[in-house]
Nucleic acid binder design. Sequence first.
DNA 1: CTGAAAGCGCTTACAG
DNA 2: CTGAAAGCGCTTACAG
Lengths: 327, 327
Amino acid sequence: MTTIADIAKLAGVAKSTVSRYLNDGSVSEGTKKKIERVINETGYTPNAFAQSLKAKNTNIIGTIVPRLDSYATSRTLIGIDEQLKELNYQMLISNSNQHLETEIENIYTLAKQKVAGIILLAAEITEMHLEAFAKIDVPVLLVGQQHEHIYSVIHDDYHAAYEMGKYILDKGHKKIAYLGVTEKDIAVGVKRKQGFKESMKSTSDCEVKYYETSFNITEALEKVPEIIDSFQPSILVCATDNIALGAMKAASIKGLNIPKDLSITGFGGYEITGMIHPGLTTAKFFYQEAGQLAARSIVKLVRQEELELLNVSSFQLIFRESVDSIV
Amino acid sequence: MTTIADIAKLAGVAKSTVSRYLNDGSVSEGTKKKIERVINETGYTPNAFAQSLKAKNTNIIGTIVPRLDSYATSRTLIGIDEQLKELNYQMLISNSNQHLETEIENIYTLAKQKVAGIILLAAEITEMHLEAFAKIDVPVLLVGQQHEHIYSVIHDDYHAAYEMGKYILDKGHKKIAYLGVTEKDIAVGVKRKQGFKESMKSTSDCEVKYYETSFNITEALEKVPEIIDSFQPSILVCATDNIALGAMKAASIKGLNIPKDLSITGFGGYEITGMIHPGLTTAKFFYQEAGQLAARSIVKLVRQEELELLNVSSFQLIFRESVDSIV
DNA sequence: CTGAAAGCGCTTACAG
DNA sequence: CTGAAAGCGCTTACAG
């Protein structure tokens, strides 16, 4: 293993000069060349531990995810990773496994590891989160959820739901069931529902009912039949693609034809929604792009550059076969 | 930030004693207690960089994945992470984005970061891989692919395919199409086909044809119609769940009923295969468990304990509605 | 069992 | 622009 001392000796300069060459670079052309040559010959790369020991922080961005096995998470991570590499930062993934306490722990652990910044793929921001953010001296960026005091990148849940509502109204649906999730989740539970409700205001002859389920496909699978039986909606607007998938399965099991007997929509734009039959009409969010935006944003924060508190990533409605036109 | 020097001063001992307390622990009961108290009061944790700088290696296991957005990868990572935490190691994920060169680069980069070991979720092992493994002085474990010279954890592709073959024979199928992938992929391309072929030997009145496609759903979607048209199989055995998903979509688009007109099976056991309608008959691999096994195995390698060269993770056939019984 | 000292590979004022 | 020296927070022989 070659060290900075080796390079210095081989190049005939002092270690500090090599270090300067590696960093700020106020070195004369001549010595620059000498050092460059030696580094190339030896294939030297500085020891990151020694660097971090002095510098007291790293070029690592810690990314905390609630779960690893989710399409949204994966795509977001890919975007973060891509962009971070380009900016010469490294991504460190920390999985909290849907455990609030583990999530809080991970915040402190990452801080202790002297990460330059933390990206949190958030579901819910509690007092404990705020306390942790305050205690650690590391910039934090939320992805997927907003907060009045914390920088964030969010998806445009509100407008996506608003447009979705408009669309199904256009399609002539009048008995509409909205299957949402807990309001603890501001993005999915509150904003999507708000946007949807807003779009429903434009009509008066519609019957709209709101239901709640979890993010779990299986729970949707169980809940949907009673909604169908009691309310008999012409369309079921599901707050996530997974819930929609569960709903489709439930409808199929009941022998209903989608979309003839029941239309269904989702939110997310998961790849699988285009691979099933019938294809699912959904609002696609750009997870990878949002990840890239998040990476750029946290680096700005690290560099103490300016950043909007709230950064919104866009969406796109995808129209497929799961919605029928009612005439 | 409190350091080992602070602890030493507060406890009235030398730094080296504190260090000893933290490590081998040959410290008298009395001083142990004093140090313990101070550490608890201050909430001191050693600086990992300083430790690594001396120790010259870390408790980090680098995990290289070909892609982040795959069910198999995600589940495997969860298993690795879980088990590694329990063994007091940390997982560092390195995404090569299905780029061979990036993958090779990642091997060297991880080695430079002084990871204790490397787990490689492998697709194909080339000469460049072997060269990299030889050059770096870090134990390596393959997951998903085997190799005569390298430690590995694999799924039991051969027997899974063998059992699947037996099962569809039992169901009375006689015109069978097998849709596999490139033989560069030993596990999926070679072993699954071999196991399947072996099971076909037990019968003589069957017509079996072998086709090849990529891992890409879309490609399966395009390829399947011509297979159906030209060969008219009663069943399509797909080498992965994704290919099966594409096949199901293709069949649905053609207006075929699954399984009445065409039976379909997959391999993988992805969660989604149970959520679509009809449910997909498939061979489930235990990715998470395999990940745990991988974590235990690489730690054994790091600790220079003994390990079998080849470690096999199990499988389970899941019977659902996508296979018809032919009488 | 315990402490003083050297050293891991860097960076950073401080002189020149 | 350049170098000598101190120091980052730890560990590890070496004495005692």
